[in-house]
Amino acid sequence: MTLLAVEGLEKRFGGVQALAGLSLSLDEGGLLCLLGPNGCGKTTFFRVLSGETAADAGRIDFADRRLEGEGPAGRARLGIARKLQTPGLFAALTVAEHLALAAASPAAHGPVDAAALLARVGLGEHAETPAGRLSHGQRQWLEIAMLLALRPRLLLLDEPTAGMTRAETRRTAALLRELNDKDGVAAIVIEHDMAFVRELDVAVAVMLQGRVVATGSYAEVGRDPLVRELYLGKRA
């Protein structure tokens, strides 16, 4: 069953066409990696999808409902949870308070076992630590845990492994796989780290100049001449 259907999305910032007829779809419980060079419109797509900015044209259907006009809070209440590119946390609040905040939110879809969730992301020992004192990787995980406490229907993860070590990246890939396989959480992940994408081994959509130009598995997309040209350059 289709959870998200995006059709002909357009967004222009002054003279820059950030989204130029973007279309894609995602099934319930689906996991999709969004690839593409810097400036191709990936984050703009997330901004539009999460209600931070409005599209100029096109339509978005989410869970059999057309999205129109809701801001970020409204979209969150519908079950769309977005992880920002740089960790979006509350420095003075403790790890446990972050989960309490999410659990008390009008967007929370059901109860949550905070201790189990923290243990799952490796922060079980840090419940009383203020977020400002966590390492970069721990902050990324805390933000993911906070979003999971909302029990969302769709997770939007913007470069979740940015600034992580190799080991942390692997652990994040494993966590994401587990969330998807066991909990059935649907997610779209923007990522530049090819090792992470390979490790995830899920459907991939490649964006260029504001639209999707190739879709398929990592291996299939890797054989696409346009994608090879984008990532490896033209043969002389």
Binding site: A76, A81, A92, L93, E97, L101, A104, S105, A107, M146
Partner: peptide
Amino acid sequence: SSRGLAMTAVRENEDRLGFLGYDV
């Protein structure tokens, strides 16, 4: 209380709070 927690969160990062579904 949880309301107080949300108030502190406004000071810390009001944009993020909006993405959590709160009416900032």
